[in-house]
Simulated scan of single mutants.
Amino acid sequence: MTLHIQALGPAIGALVTGIDLTQPVSDAQRDALLAGLLQHHVLFFENQPVTPVQQRDLARRFGELHIHPVYPTHPDAVEIIVLDTDDNNPPDNDNWHTDVTFIDKPPMGALLSARHLPPSGGDTLWASGIAAYEALSEPLRKLLDPLHAEHSFVQSFPAWRYARTPEERKVWESAAAKYPDIPHPVVRTHPVSGKRGLFVNEGFTSRIVELDKKESDAILAFLRVHIAKPEFTVRWRWKQYDLAFWDNRLTQHYATVDYLPHRRVMHRATVLGDVPY
């Protein structure tokens, strides 16, 4: 097979064919995928029935893996998050977010596999923080460039949802203590491409440090609306065993919740990154 990467839009997204991810990925294939990720920000693969162990091993080809502090994980591979949602366990990711920005070295990327899908719905959208930043006026870019924003674990994982039992409370309190609010640049530089992009998101960003509350709330509200403009996004309609691999450093994503009461199960492996600057 010959690996081929076809763009799905000018700002973000590409479909990858000519590769079997259930088999070990060669160095040449890994390098080609990283180059495609750098250009397109999110790569989609169809009909890739990887097991949790295969997905973990694939993700390890791109770096050290993160183990989530509160999400359930797969018994065969603790590095694989199991996102199993239905009417009794509604999802919490129907907002624009960048994964795990509440740590000092947020993930460089993530690999998401569709395991069980509803009859319809449950699409995921990704947005390019680079395209959104470059579309801003020069005065606004200059305002944002030196600013920092705090990212909060408890904002995205509140106690009322994740500490409902004594056992959950113990895990949640440990995570909340381990991950206090942490500042990151509002505009981040991609460590490989050198491009600049927005690095604030609805899921985790609580405030802009250098601004007062009203100013911070107004700027963050504007940026949340701005990055969701269709021209900065790509939408993927999942089929079973589809897999997405995205650059988490300067993208956001949104999982639509239009499938309840039906069930949706996704497996995610998360590759750790570096300190944003």
Rank of each mutant, 00 (worst) to 15 (best):
E46R: 15
Q55S: 02
F44Y: 14
F62R: 04
Y71L: 15
P52N: 07
V42Y: 09
V70E: 07
L58P: 03
R56W: 02
H74Y: 13
Y71G: 05
H74N: 12
D57Y: 06
V53N: 02
V70H: 05
V70I: 15
V70M: 13
H68A: 05
T51N: 08
Y71N: 14
L43E: 08
Q54P: 09
V50P: 00
R61L: 04
Q48D: 04
V50I: 12
R60P: 03
V50F: 01
E64V: 03
F44H: 10
R56E: 15
R60D: 03
Q48K: 05
P69N: 11
L43K: 08
Q54S: 06
I67F: 05
P49A: 06
T73D: 12
P49R: 08
P52G: 08
E46L: 09
V50A: 14
P52Y: 11
Y71R: 12
H68Q: 06
Q48N: 08
F44D: 04
V50E: 08
H68Y: 07
H68L: 02
E46G: 11
L58A: 05
Q48L: 04
P52A: 11
R60K: 15
F62S: 01
F62T: 03
E64S: 08
P49L: 08
H66L: 00
I67A: 10
T73F: 13
R60I: 01
H68N: 03
L65R: 00
A59L: 06
L65P: 00
V42A: 13
E64Y: 02
I67S: 08
A59S: 14
F45M: 13
I67C: 09
H74V: 08
T51H: 09
F44V: 14
I67Q: 10
L58H: 06
E46D: 13
E46A: 15
V50L: 15
P49E: 10
F62P: 02
N47D: 15
V50T: 13
V53C: 01
P69H: 12
L43H: 07
P69D: 12
P49M: 12
T73A: 14
P52C: 09
R60C: 09
R56Y: 01
R60M: 13
P72Q: 11
F62V: 02
A59Y: 02
E64K: 01
F44C: 10
D57C: 06
Q54L: 05
R56H: 10
V53P: 01
F44R: 02
R61D: 04
R60S: 13
T51S: 15
P49Q: 08
P49C: 09
F44S: 04
N47S: 15
V70W: 02
G63C: 04
Q55F: 01
V53R: 07
I67H: 11
L65F: 01
H68R: 02
P69W: 11
Q48M: 07
F45I: 10
R60E: 14
V50R: 07
Y71M: 14
F45D: 10
P49H: 06
G63V: 03
T73W: 11
V50W: 02
Q54E: 15
T51W: 11
Q48I: 04
